[in-house]
Design a protein around this nucleic acid. Structure first.
Lengths: 130, 130
DNA sequence: CGGTATCCGACGAGATACTG
DNA sequence: CAGTATCTCGTCGGATACCG
């Protein structure tokens, strides 16, 4: 995606279509709730409420919505156990697992550069306001 | 970050603060424009208008805004050449380069699973509407 | 417990116009 | 060319309430 193609050949309508789809998928996955959910689902399979507890700050609604998206894109697998009370479990599919490696990288990056960023912000803010 | 800590020790206020900061940074970076910009800036240094052309679909405003954020967090370096007409160049800092690897991973993932996802969507949509 | 629907405020983001 | 400001509108996202 974004395979630096400044002047694309007008002929490959197929590639442009695939590219626009790629863009949409990328945008769908490049959002905090989706990535956070994937990160939390990394190794275990969790239930709806457990997920909400693990991912701090996500609302009931956004959790359901994001899970729907991830399910639709085949990143998480939704298993309903026909019992009462209902028991629904979520786990990563192979595609989700593949993405998870990337997410881990982003989390690691955040940890590594936390201080660096905090200081960069101080510099930026002072050299602007001052 | 999100180092599965269901019941955190109430004593380490420091860790919770760092964690909330980490969350904010993660969320700031986990958005399509930021990631797309980082991806485009991967190997070369680009000017404002060049960036806008490379990242298709981004508005003048969002480009400026996102660049400000990235600059503030020390991910991109902004160099102003005092000439006329103005020439401002953007390049990744070391922190940005480090994050870039992750972004590359996400782009690669998107390419790899494009077909997989497209089919998953068809299945999902049909087994729902049907 | 898991999920959807509705209402409503806040913010994201485009268009436009203006400065240096 | 690079950047900011304003205005506007659409969407995101939270709270709440209600079904299975």
């Amino acid at each position: 995606m974004v395979t630096d193609n400044p002047a694309r050949d007008p002929a490959d309508t197929d590639l442009t279509r695939a590219d626009s789809l790629a863009r949409e998928i990328f945008a769908g996955v490049a959002n905090k709730w989706a990535l956070l959910l994937i990160n939390v689902l990394a190794d275990r399979t969790l239930r709806f409420t457990e997920l909400q507890k693990q991912v701090g700050g996500i609302s009931h609604k956004m959790l359901a919505q994001t899970l729907r998206h991830l399910e639709r894109d085949g990143l998480v697998d939704r298993t309903v156990h026909p019992v009462v009370p209902p028991r629904v479990e979520y786990r990563l599919t192979e595609a989700g697992q593949a993405l998870r490696a990337t997410v881990n990288g982003m989390c690691a990056w955040t940890r590594t550069y936390l201080d660096h960023i905090e200081e960069a912000r101080r510099r930026f803010d002072s050299t602007r306001a001052g």
